[in-house]
Nucleic acid binder design. Structure first.
Lengths: 212, 212
DNA sequence: TGTACATCAGTGAACGCGCGTTCACTGATGTAC
DNA sequence: TGTACATCAGTGAACGCGCGTTCACTGATGTAC
């Protein structure tokens, strides 16, 4: 890679990091072009050297944020039962620390409302990222759906909905004690989430770390 | 009430209906002053005869929307077990019809992200409305917390988080079949939500109808 | 009942601001010969 | 190796637009006498 290309790529990485942080903290409208470029140490005009428009940036920022979130949340493999796994991931996700540390928080929770009001391209990206997170929860490979038991996948969907809904509620209220209680109630509820297990309980090949 | 006051009140009701619909459809930023006033059949200048600023409107619109949502969702009393009640309310809430009918949808789901990024006044209003909905789920009076079993209240919190999270996810994705599956998985999960019941199962005095 | 004045819901033009996007330009890097 | 030109990441001023808010004004309603 030429020196120029290396420089451009370094700028791109700064733009992606800045836009991911802003997306998680303030949603789509917070990831404004001028603000993101300022955070990245560039002027707003340079933006169009990297992206065609703001929607492209939003999609790239979402993907960038979630790749990072997933790595830290689900992490590396480990032996555990399906229920233990959900309980463990729930205890990592539904914490006051995750609620308060917006800049590194789960982007699926941060932009769920924004995605609902976005065009098909952003929705498609959101769906792809949600599917990747669901597969990660199921401890399957990124693009490998065949090995996932449908009942477990449904458990994972409800689990993710509980995580995102609980975090959204906890952030939307004013009183810290009530917010803490919301998180605690949701962590507690994860323990009763898994559907009655199908005939044979297949051994999961799980993984390690927290944010979507 | 004088003829003038009646006229003003009729205008206010139109403003509240218009802003509640826009709040549910497009969130806080969608409930823009000029757009709301246009919907209400007035010019934007008249807005400040009714509200001090946009935040006051947002709070009033949220309260207006949720009063309506709650009435239709929880409705009138009926005899049923706690679990049956949650399952029934979940089946009313987590439907494709509710997902698609944005103008009448649950405002708690619609503005959860907005509330998280709002000032203390809007958050306080969101919290109050969320508490009212939780009490309604528990089939208690609006301002009466003493008769609610804490374990049930925690169940209600997790149930509401699952409803809001499931609806948010279902709206954020692109593919209708996947969206339907999200709703189905969440409806299914409600059935396993309730905590192991405490010693004596007290009889609930429940109620009837669907959106928050 | 009639007249004179006060009130006030609603009008419509204007404001300052931040947004996404465009564009002529700069200057360091890369390429051709 | 040296010169001449092409490329292109980044700059900074400018655009049109929608936002929340202000304000002088209108005209129907309400009130005092």
């Amino acid at each position: 890679m030429s020196a120029r290309a290396e420089l451009k790529n370094a700028s791109l990485q700064r733009i992606l990091n800045a836009s991911a942080a802003r997306l998680r903290q303030e949603g789509l409208s917070g990831a404004a072009v001028a603000a993101v470029m300022l955070d990245a140490g560039l002027t707003h005009g340079a933006f169009y050297c990297h992206f065609a428009n703001k929607e492209d940036l939003a999609i790239a920022a979402l993907r960038h944020a979630l790749k990072d979130n997933r790595r830290r949340w689900v992490g590396s493999a480990r032996r555990e039962s399906w229920l233990d796994r959900l309980i463990r991931l729930g205890r990592r996700y539904l914490t006051p620390a995750h609620r308060d540390d917006l800049a590194d928080s789960c982007a699926l929770a941060a932009v769920a409302s924004d995605a609902a009001r976005s065009g098909p391209a952003f929705k498609a990206a959101y769906q792809e990222e949600a599917l990747k997170s669901l597969r990660a929860i199921c401890a399957a490979a990124d693009d490998d759906d065949r090995t996932i038991d449908p009942a477990r996948f449904d458990d994972a969907i409800a689990f993710l909905a509980l995580c995102i809904g609980g975090m959204s509620l906890a952030r939307a209220v004013n009183d810290k004690a009530f917010s803490d209680r919301i998180l605690a109630a949701c962590r507690q509820a994860v323990g009763s989430l898994t559907a009655p297990l199908p005939p044979e309980p297949p051994t999961a090949e799980p993984t390690d770390d927290p944010n979507s």
